[in-house]
Design a protein around this nucleic acid. Structure first.
Lengths: 94, 94
DNA sequence: TGTACATTTGTCATTTAATGTCAAGTGAAC
DNA sequence: GTTCACTTGACATTAAATGACAAATGTACA
């Protein structure tokens, strides 16, 4: 349920970047980035896009994962989560 | 993409209630309710629940529709909407 | 042990978005 | 042209998201 954060952290470590280095490139606080990676806070869309560039990630895929996390956040604790997803899918397919 | 509002309006008219009467029961402004029905603003969760009681709607179904609208709002203009939905579904199925 | 460094945690300030309120506007019916 | 239901737009208020900072934690190693 924090697939985006996990992805970012994995890629960052793979590239052997420190939080403060990546944070500096994004022009945000190190603590902010730490929280994003652990899912304590969600990233801004613009930061997501920027991250895909810095970490050589696929933009579309990464955005999808980030969006999916947002959806999961919205539906957390909702009994009708899956039912709502199905309805949304029907609507968006049109 | 405003299924919730359409549902509320249909039911309200079916019961021949005026906006101001329903708004009074919800303890909100008439203009607010008007906007909710037309999808200009989203309803609060508590108002959704209250509406199901007043309008004799199925609570689970109505909440699903309301949630679906929220999801659609979140994904509006996103090219990866359907892809994100699929990912969210996978996550939430677990 | 204690120092250096990376990360995390908690608190509070600031910004942005959601919601609420009101007054004026529109349109239909009579 | 008056009344009534509803809509629109502007602004106030409230709540949520984001940002910034200091202190805490944990780890490695001299």
């Amino acid at each position: 349920m924090n697939n985006f954060g996990d992805l970012i952290r994995a890629k960052r470590e793979e590239k052997e970047m420190l939080l403060r280095h990546l944070a500096a490139e994004l022009d945000i606080d190190t603590a902010q980035l730490s929280k994003m990676e652990r899912g304590e806070r969600t990233a801004r869309r613009e930061h997501v896009v920027e991250l895909t560039k810095i970490l050589s990630l696929d933009k579309e895929e990464t955005l999808s994962i980030w969006l999916a996390d947002q959806i999961c956040l919205l539906l957390a604790k909702e009994k009708q989560a899956l039912r709502a997803l199905k309805l949304a899918e029907t609507t968006l397919s049109k």
